[in-house]
């Protein structure tokens, strides 16, 4: 039962609980109309202590499409937070008005701290560079929809694997399924942190390799998860120049890939995915946005206990 639970860390839910969210999301995808009154009379509070148009829109659209309503703030300047109100006080106040809260905060661990003082479910909508569990739900639902399941997949993660929180969460989440293999594609400076390698991959005996160039491995991938590589992250100019093109997905590289590859990206992109492949059937990153809303609809309904 997910009713009344918080979602703070992508690992908070068991595989069965995740499955129940995906099942509901799939029902919603099939027949959105029959869910349009599911949350009538319910209110979602969106507490966005830092701006994030994309995530906030997704949450708000999800609640509105379930027939619920939304109140909240999109920057702390317009709330009593500016007057120095503590998180516990803000949460106790807002929890008196709404039924469920989506909270984004620049400080890591803020939603967890909030959850200790909340009588209603709190969803972490991103806390600094730490966790972003609804992005992980989005990624998982997308994989399930385009690949039909979570097992027997070779997953390539490309770009900034060091600082990319969505990458870390996705590895943790996918490592719970059967027969998964990871190919980690990044410059040496931006390789996956050691704790993920030891605690998650080696500990669970999950096969993985680390490579520098996307074109060397793209032919073996079932899923390619692209992330942005920022120039500032490189230690020297020479390496950046040598490698920068390896992390840009274009038509040339895509020619080497499997016909049923699925390309994902948490968005927004800068130049790591060339616009010329947007129309390729393997490009799933725009579908992914929609799955994000469906995943949030299913999550809200489950946490409220209305489905």
């Amino acid at each position: 039962m997910l009713k009344g639970k918080h979602l703070i860390d992508p690992q908070d839910f068991s595989l069965e609980e995740l499955e129940s969210i995906f099942e509901l999301a799939e029902e919603i995808i099939k027949d959105q109309n029959s869910f349009k009154d599911l949350c009538t009379g319910k209110i979602l509070g969106t507490l966005f202590y830092e701006p994030s148009t994309r995530t906030r829109f997704s949450f708000e659209a999800a609640m509105l499409r379930l027939g619920g309503r939304v109140i909240g703030f999109s920057e702390p300047g317009s709330s009593s937070v500016m007057k120095g109100e503590s998180i516990p006080d803000t949460i106790r106040t807002v929890a008196s008005y709404v039924d469920i809260i989506a909270m984004r905060h620049p400080k890591e661990g803020a939603p967890k701290y909030a959850s200790y003082y909340s009588s209603i479910p709190i969803i972490n909508a991103g806390d600094g560079g730490h966790q972003h569990p609804t992005q992980t739900l989005t990624d998982l639902l997308t994989i399930k929809e385009v690949k039909g399941g979570f097992s027997d997949l070779t997953i390539g993660l490309c770009g900034d694997l060091k600082f990319g929180r969505t990458v870390h969460s996705l590895i943790k989440a996918m490592s719970r399924y059967e027969n998964i293999k990871f190919i980690l594609i990044s410059p040496k400076e931006l390789q996956i942190p050691n704790y993920i390698k030891t605690e998650i991959l080696e500990n669970k005996d999950i096969p993985f390799i680390e490579v520098e160039r996307l074109e060397d491995v793209i032919d073996s991938l079932d899923i390619l998860y692209m992330t942005r590589v920022q120039k500032e992250r490189f230690f020297n100019e020479a390496d950046y120049i040598r490698l920068k093109d390896s992390y840009i997905l274009d038509r040339e590289k895509l020619k080497l890939a499997k016909k049923d590859l699925a390309i994902l990206h948490p968005l927004p992109r800068v130049n790591e995915i060339s616009y010329e492949i947007d129309d390729d059937p393997r490009a799933c990153y725009f579908q992914q946005i929609k799955y994000g809303m469906y995943a949030r609809m299913a999550l809200i309904a489950k946490l409220l206990g209305v489905a």
Binding site: S86, I87, P106, K107, E108, G109, Y113, G128
Partner: peptide
């Protein structure tokens, strides 16, 4: 010691 941690700004935490 993490300057980005919620403990760095919240009072009474």
């Amino acid at each position: 010691k993490n300057p980005r941690c919620v403990t760095s700004t919240e009072r009474n935490i």
